[in-house]
Amino acid sequence: MRRGITFKIPNEHGKILGDLLKPFNTETFHWYIGGEESYFIQNDTLGEALFHKEIYGMDGRVLKELLESYEYYIIFANFKAFPKEKDVIDVQTYEEFLNSDCQLVLLVVDCEYATVYGKDQVKLEALYHNAIRNGYVDVQYITNENDFRTRLSVS
């Protein structure tokens, strides 16, 4: 069974997460944002933090606007999508993810290593093909056999 995908994104500033999430209906969810380390780009340098703290329930329309309209640099990121009518929590393991209402997990580590877990296999396949179209490197499916991650977190 396909759990998710993993790949390398460019280690540069841009609208990378907005591009990465294009096939996913970001705006139709509420999001957990881990408040890790990401910055707006201002005058071609790192500016204010993209997220100042951990957020439980960021509206997907706000997140979509932020990720698709502004330039930023991602060092570490932890995003989790929940249906709007459900409680937003920070799931920590794959088992918690499976047993929760969380529909998608997006993790970025060290500026370039991206991992996406998803429950919807059609959306997961669309994200996989989108990653290839965007020129991301080493795009691979994560399966039960090759998933060595013990926590769905970047810290």
Rank of each mutant, 00 (worst) to 15 (best):
H13N: 05
S153L: 04
G4C: 05
G60N: 01
V116I: 15
V154F: 04
V88H: 09
K22A: 06
Y73R: 07
Y136A: 02
G47W: 03
I5F: 09
F40K: 02
T28K: 15
V116T: 09
Q121H: 03
I55W: 04
L21Q: 10
V91N: 01
Y113T: 14
G118E: 06
L152T: 01
F76P: 05
K80Q: 15
E65L: 08
L63Y: 08
N78L: 12
N43G: 12
Y39M: 04
Y94M: 06
Q121E: 03
L104P: 01
R2Q: 15
I132K: 09
L21K: 13
H30E: 12
R149E: 14
D87K: 10
E36V: 12
G135T: 01
D87F: 11
H52Y: 13
Y141G: 07
F82V: 02
L20T: 02
T93P: 05
N134D: 09
V105Q: 00
N146S: 04
S155P: 14
I132L: 03
N130G: 10
E37D: 13
Y73E: 08
D138R: 13
H13V: 00
L127S: 09
L98E: 11
L107I: 01
L107C: 02
Y70Q: 14
S155W: 14
V109R: 05
E12P: 06
D59P: 05
D44Y: 05
T150C: 07
G4S: 00
G135H: 01
D120S: 08
G34V: 02
N11W: 11
L124D: 04
K8M: 13
S155F: 14
S69V: 08
V139T: 09
E145Q: 11
N43R: 15
F79M: 01
L46V: 07
Q103M: 07
A131F: 05
I9Y: 00
G57R: 06
I5Y: 10
E95L: 06
I55H: 13
R61A: 14
I75C: 08
T45M: 02
K86W: 07
M58W: 00
L66R: 08
N134K: 07
E112H: 15
R149V: 10
F82R: 01
Y70T: 12
Q121I: 09
K119T: 11
A126Q: 12
L127H: 05
Q42N: 08
I41Y: 06
N146R: 11
F29H: 05
G60A: 03
Q42H: 11
R133Y: 11
M1A: 13
